[in-house]
């Protein structure tokens, strides 16, 4: 790239400057504000103002008060991620290896649900799973659900909603990984008398691991912080940590606790992600 070198030495810096400044000002500084907020004196209020008093006890307080929704968020997110992985792998595999000339069309169809609002899609599930709806009636008729059994306002509905909403985030990175695989490697496994199943587990699956790692992260992280599904499809028994944080901010005005809880979520996720990536042993995620 001899020609790029001829360009002014500082052009790169000038091009980068606006974005870097924006992200510093509206991403890094807010993070600092959030940390400060999480250490506010809890006695303050939005009217009298808060004092930043290094009040680390906030963290202990919120974990003690909200460990249930916190754990539930990670549990639901894990289940939804597993569901997305199973469904997403099948779909991504079909697109990458079986779709032929329909590949592009199927990829467009994967992202197309994004074009209807997240909230409207979730509300649509509320209708599908409704108590007098077709699905509930059928399940009651075949005896899977009791006569008073319902799907709405259960953990199942919330996990299903999360799975549904974040599925494209799983399919796209999986597809990107699977699509790169050299088909000759899979054929070679067959030529060496590996059964299709063995070929899959020894060749295809390991080669698609970067996609699995990226996909699971892209589903798990937003799912753990989501509160739309638990609010619309669940009941107070399915409250997730996002519901609590949102509620602390807007209804109770307890900024110190809300900040501490947000930070707790972020810290746990960061530690989890670092450990996970170390274990899965891949760094090229994007």
């Amino acid at each position: 790239m001899a020609r790029t070198r001829r360009r002014a030495r500082f052009t790169g810096y000038w091009l980068m400057l606006p974005s870097a400044l924006w992200l510093a000002l509206f991403f890094l500084v807010p993070f600092y504000s959030l940390i400060a907020m999480s250490l506010y004196d809890p006695e303050g209020s939005s009217l009298t103002g808060y004092d930043m008093t290094w009040h680390f006890a906030n963290y202990v307080d919120v974990v003690q008060a909200y460990w249930r929704p916190l754990l539930r968020s990670f549990w639901y997110a894990a289940l939804a991620t597993l569901g997305c992985l199973l469904l997403g792998y099948v779909l991504a595999y079909a697109i990458a290896f079986k779709a032929g000339r329909w590949k592009n069309l199927m990829l467009v169809l994967v992202i197309a649900p994004f074009f209807t609002s997240f909230l409207i899609r979730t509300l649509s599930w509320k209708l599908i799973l409704a108590d007098d709806g077709w699905i509930v009636n059928t399940l009651q008729a075949v005896g899977i659900l009791g006569p008073d059994g319902r799907l709405l306002a259960t953990s199942f509905a919330v996990v299903m909603g999360l799975t549904y909403n974040f599925l494209p985030f799983m399919v796209l990175p999986l597809f990107a990984s699977l699509d790169k695989i050299d088909h000759r490697l899979i054929e070679a496994a067959g030529d060496l008398y590996a059964s299709p199943a063995r070929g899959f587990f020894k060749v295809t699956l390991p080669l698609s691991m970067p996609g699995v790692v990226a996909g699971t992260l892209l589903t798990f992280i937003p799912a753990a912080g989501d509160y739309i599904n638990s609010e619309l499809l669940g009941s107070p028994n399915q409250r997730m940590i996002g519901n609590v944080i949102q509620n602390l901010f807007t209804n109770q005005g307890d900024y110190a606790a809300a900040g501490a809880l947000s930070m707790t979520l972020m810290i746990i996720i960061t530690i989890g992600v670092v450990l996970y990536i170390r274990r899965a042993g891949t760094e090229d995620l994007v």
């Binding site: 992200l23 991403f27 500084v29 807010p30 504000s33 989501d226 949102q246 947000s262």
Partner: peptide
Amino acid sequence: LIILPMAAPEIVLGSSMLALFV
């Protein structure tokens, strides 16, 4: 710095901006 905003859960991103604005 570019990847982090995509990696943080929305609720955390939203909280941090609210913290800044407040």
